[in-house]
Design a protein around this nucleic acid. Structure first.
Length: 496
RNA sequence: GGUCGCGUGGCCGAGCGGCUAGGCAGAGCUCUGCAAAAGCUCGUACAGCGGUUCGAAUCCGCUCGCGACCUCCA
């Protein structure tokens, strides 16, 4: 394309031209879910935003390695380094193995991702699968003097780190304030500074998820896994790191510190953050208890919803907003999205059906040609401008007007030059389908359609129109269905 | 309190110095057995008050509202 992709880099707080470190390869890491309960709509929005990025980068011809982890240990319930493990807690409550909890919610997560048509990442590593690597990174940080051990636990020293590097760049924190404002944590805190964070925690009595290490039988800190896994699969510096805005601090800040401390270089070139989904203007969040689960949306089974909304309706609604804006979820917005989505799918069906007759001689319509080309450009301009899917969709609707007018014979395909015609069709199909990931949701209730056909069959039979009867039976047979004339009724069954 | 962001027509939501955003809803027309779809047309929006500018929704200042992060969350 003419212009280049520009992305908003949280680190520099501006849109910058995307230039991979080693083109055509792109390394992209996105913080995945902690699998201690179901993902909610807000989580889905983040993963969908990065799915678009993944898809678009591929569309532009890059070879993308997309790594998205599953956090299955180390994420504590409350205080940064002094709570229960989220997964361990649920496991205890339900009297299950922690890995049963992990399995259950990982499966749910994958199921939701598939329904919403998010592509699977290239690699989906788990924290527990990388304990050796985590332990060796802790050793490295200890050797470099950036971490200290206390009673079998190891902490990262922000003060030591900040002596050599700068802590807080990503989130704009003032390190002195953070260091100065240390609060008393009941004197039970082992940390030198309250903002230091755990790399390894010694397991206390009730902690069921535990592993051996040089320091104690314990478990790794939450921030460590992402550093370790991104390093392992993408190298010490890689192109893109994404996640929800709420992970910017402290999680991503800690990742930067660990990576830089261990490898001497800032690990990430472009930091991208997706904004929050809100409910009645408030962030959707597990802790606020205002979550809506994907399944509740798909079934309509939630007090805030007055009907069900399909996976593609949700996807479309999300793409109508920019990923860096907050987006409010509401019945009105979803209903509008449901209609608009179906409209676009009608456009897609029309686009696929149009044909160009090269032998036809028709006067060229220069105005239409230039309009169509400028619409195509506007779509790419939108996507290149920090993934502005809203602008891209607006372009698709503008293009759909042209498709419709051809479909209705108001504009001859041959009034366009062949290149423009092809460009129009391929852009419409490729952007909506491949890049935005919008696919047709065919009606599920096939049985109703069959029943309608069988009504016809019955009527033809009564009219002794056996020619028609045979045709219907043959057509249904082609679909793998057989009609059964019972004594008092007509049934259908799968052709055996 | 600190840091950051937002307030756009009935609703959702782009735009970020001059050029039609788009969708949903609504009105009119064309088409039409009825209907739907589709096409065309319409409403002239940018929280308020100042300022900069030939020109501001877009830049600056203030005011009012809302939100995020600051020991959990995508």
């Amino acid at each position: 394309m003419q212009q280049k992709l520009r992305l908003y880099n949280t680190l520099s707080r501006e849109k910058v031209v995307f230039e991979p470190i080693n083109p055509p390869f792109v390394g992209m890491y996105v913080c995945g879910p902690t699998v201690y309960n179901n993902v909610h709509l807000g989580n889905v929005r983040t993963f969908t935003s990065f799915d678009i990025l993944f898809r678009y980068l591929k569309h532009l011809g890059y070879k993308v390695r997309y790594v998205r982890n599953i956090t299955d240990v180390g994420h504590l319930v409350n205080d940064a380094d002094d709570g229960e493990d989220k997964i361990g807690k649920i496991a205890k409550l339900e009297n299950l193995e922690p890995m049963e909890i992990v399995q259950r919610y990982t499966t749910d997560f994958h199921d939701v991702m598939a329904r919403i048509n998010n592509l699977p990442p290239s690699i989906e590593p788990t924290a527990t699968g990388h304990l050796l690597e985590q332990i060796s990174m802790i050793k490295e940080l200890l050797v470099k003097g950036m971490a200290y051990e206390v009673n079998g636990s190891v902490y990262f020293s922000i003060r030591k780190y900040n002596d050599k590097y700068t802590y807080g760049e990503l989130s704009g924190r003032n390190i002195d304030e953070l260091l100065g404002g240390s609060r008393d944590l009941d004197g039970q805190d082992e940390k030198q500074e309250s903002i230091d964070f755990a790399l390894w925690k010694k397991a206390t009595g009730g902690h069921i998820m535990r592993w051996d290490s040089p320091w104690s039988v314990g478990f790794p800190g939450w921030h460590l896994e992402c550093s370790v896994m991104s390093h392992k699969y993408l190298g010490k510096t890689f192109d893109i790191h994404g996640g929800g805005l709420d992970l910017k601090f402290p999680h991503h800040e800690c990742e930067i510190a660990q990576g830089t401390a261990a490898h001497g270089e800032h690990p990430v070139k472009y930091w991208l953050h997706a904004n929050m989904l809100t409910v009645n203007g408030q962030k959707m969040s597990k802790s606020l208890g205002n979550s809506i689960l994907p399944d509740q949306l798909f079934t309509g089974n939630h007090e805030l919803l007055d009907q069900s909304y399909s996976p593609m309706t949700l996807r479309f609604a999300m793409l109508q907003a920019h990923y860096r804006s907050t987006m409010d979820i509401s019945n009105d917005a979803l209903k509008a999205a449901a209609k608009a989505y179906r409209k676009l799918m009608n456009g897609l069906r029309i686009a696929k059906s149009l044909e160009y007759d090269e032998s036809a001689t028709v006067d060229k319509n220069d105005k239409a040609i230039s309009q169509i080309n400028s619409i195509v450009d506007s779509i790419y301009r939108g996507l290149n401008d920090d993934l502005n899917t809203a602008v891209a969709i607006a372009g698709l609707f503008n293009m759909q007007k042209k498709l419709n007018s051809i479909h209705l014979g108001q504009l001859q395909p041959e009034a366009l030059d062949k290149d423009t015609f092809d460009r129009m069709i391929s852009t419409f199909a490729t952007i909506s389908h491949d890049v935005l990931g919008l696919v047709e949701e065919k009606p599920q209730n096939l049985e109703n359609a069959i029943d309608i056909v069988l009504e016809d069959y019955k009527a033809a039979k009564q009219a002794k129109d056996y020619e028609k009867v045979d045709v219907i039976r043959a057509k249904l047979k082609e679909m793998g269905l057989s009609v059964k004339d019972m004594k008092d009724r007509i049934e259908w069954a799968y052709e055996e």
